[in-house]
Design a binder for these strands. Structure first.
Length: 499
RNA sequence: GGCGCGAUAGCCAAGCGGUUAGGCACGGGUCUGCAAAACCUGUUAGACCGGUUCAACUCCGGUUCGCGCCUCCA
């Protein structure tokens, strides 16, 4: 079995064969850092992370580039409105973006090139396009790409633009284009740009949007690379234009596989500020949900399927995660009696070595366990069929629980089951972190309650339970004492700031 | 108008021409000072109309409804 993915270029599911196995070069269209990114944006980044983790799970070595668009109309306008320098303005949102990536356990890419740090590369690329006759300069000093010169134009979007005529949607400042569908490689300076400008052979100005991705992907990944991802809305014009620029300049195929994820909607409607259904990751955290819960919700629907985000679904996802947690805890307790306190995890080392280590362990699994791991893998192999993969995981949980009930699972097998879960989580990235370890004060209260129980002082025991609950933790009695768990009810967490 | 996607049980969401998807919720049970948690277990499907077939949720055609893109929005 091998990994198969849907290629937007062919509109078909194809076997994934990298240009230089086992090396995989992946380019991901990153954020425009003009505001906090929304959960819609992060749907795309969680998808890209699932792809990245699946590739690594399947033994590929991934080199990933994610660009940061830090100069465009919106960033310039935002900086001017805030009366700060462009770099100062974008820096705060870049920092927020990286914070959100960590919140959602998205593995870092190898490179995060910023557009403003690669102006010379873009200018060099535009010069090549001039030399080869694909670019022309208009009177105002802007430079455009002539799509008429590139015969494959439209092969990604499957659009026929030959009949397209200039209309109302063509901005006034672009009247100088030869063809309505020609796009800007370089934008001549205008007064609205303020002090945002760079010198170029064609005069002062700034780069067009598409050129940054071509220039930066070539710099870090080479003229041809394996995978390019983004949201469906990027297919046209952004990715179509990237192909045109890049292939015109190098004469070589730009990208082998294009993958695009569908949009996220909220309550069945497009997210918009006027509908009041507009959410950033921070907004959801403020409501008491955790990063991994948001991650799970954004990941659990197949990437080519529109994702309908609702709080009802998010609550259901919390339940699903709780089921996974409970199974891990049972296994941990079965394997190691020391675990009176829930939530401790041994392995949070580097992801790279983690996956390598897991791999060798996975070869010696009991047959029943191996079958579920195989089913999980098979599902991912089929164009990242996450729903089917999760079904395999929950089938594994079900059988594991059953075996525990029947006393048919040895402590050694429990350890193997934990290894299997860790291996699977190398892809999913939803295991709880330190947030599940209770503070010492809470544990003390729980201890005091245990003593009250042993005295059969039920009133005091109940009082102490309520005190613990007020701090966002729940006591669960167990045959060997008690467990303290973080309250996962988002309403409670939102209230006491437990998020 | 052009290109494309979808409609599955209370909600979310898969595979499959005939054999239990899965999660949440709900019902029943085990356990329990209380409380919960956990586990086991059960019920509710395939928008509509035709066709192909021994057999269709699954293939084909049509209808209805919803959605996306068609110049800078992941």
């Amino acid at each position: 079995m091998s990994l198969r993915i849907y290629n937007t270029l062919s509109r078909q599911t194809e076997e994934f064969v990298p240009l230089q196995t086992p090396q995989v070069r992946l380019y991901t269209c990153g954020p425009t850092v003009y505001d906090f990114a929304t959960i819609g944006n992060f749907r795309a980044y969680v998808f890209e992370d699932l792809l990245r983790r699946t590739l690594r799970f399947r033994g590929f070595q991934v080199t990933q580039v994610m660009n940061l668009t830090d100069v465009d109309d919106k960033t310039i306008r935002g900086a001017q409105a805030a009366k700060v320098a462009l770099g100062d303005y974008t820096r705060q949102y870049t920092n927020a973006f990286f914070e959100d990536l960590r919140t959602l356990a998205i593995e870092p890419a190898e490179h995060y090139p910023a557009a403003t740090a690669h102006i010379p590369e873009m200018i060099a690329l535009i010069e090549i396009l001039f030399q080869k006759g694909y670019a022309y300069r208009s009177e105002d000093g802007s430079v455009y790409f002539s799509i008429a010169k590139f015969k494959d134009y439209g092969k990604l979007a499957h659009l026929d633009l030959t009949g397209l005529k200039p209309g109302a949607r063509i901005a006034q400042d672009e009247y100088q284009k030869e063809n309505a569908a020609d796009f800007a490689l370089w934008k001549a300076w205008q007064s609205e740009d303020g002090d945002v400008a760079w010198d170029s052979p064609w005069g002062r100005g700034r780069p067009g949007w598409h050129i940054e991705c071509s220039a930066m992907s070539m710099k870090y990944l080479g003229a041809s690379f394996d995978l390019h991802t983004g949201g469906v809305d990027n297919i046209f014009p952004h990715h179509e234009d990237e192909i045109a620029q890049s292939e015109a300049a190098t004469g070589r195929p730009f990208v082998k596989y294009w993958m695009h994820c569908a949009h996220l909607v909220v309550d069945g409607r497009k997210m918009s500020k006027s509908l009041g259904n507009f959410f950033t990751v921070r907004d959801i955290l403020r409501r008491g949900y955790s990063g991994r819960e948001i991650r799970y919700a954004l990941m659990a629907v197949h990437y080519r399927q529109a994702l309908n985000f609702t709080f009802e679904a998010l609550d259901a996802d919390c339940g699903a995660l709780a089921r996974l947690d409970a199974f891990s805890e049972r296994l941990l307790a079965h394997n190691d009696q020391k675990s009176a306190v829930s939530g401790q995890r041994s392995e949070d080392g580097g992801q790279q070595s983690k996956i390598e280590n897991q791999k060798s362990k996975m070869s010696a699994l009991p047959a029943w366990m191996g079958a579920y791991l195989a089913a999980f893998t098979r599902a991912l192999d089929d164009d990242l069929n996450i729903s089917l993969a999760l079904a395999a995981l929950f089938d594994f949980v079900h059988e594991g629980n059953k075996r525990l009930d029947e006393g048919a699972l040895s402590p050694a097998e429990a350890a193997q089951a934990l290894d299997t879960l860790a291996h699977i989580d190398g892809v999913l990235g939803v295991r709880p972190g330190d947030t599940l370890i209770p503070p010492a004060a809470v544990v003390q209260l729980a201890q005091a309650r245990l003593q009250a129980r042993q005295r059969k002082d039920w009133a005091e025991a109940d009082r102490l339970r309520r005190e613990v609950e007020a701090q966002g933790w729940i006591i669960q009695d167990a045959p060997d004492g008690f467990r303290v768990k973080r309250n996962s009810d988002p309403r409670v967490n939102a209230q006491i700031g437990n998020g």
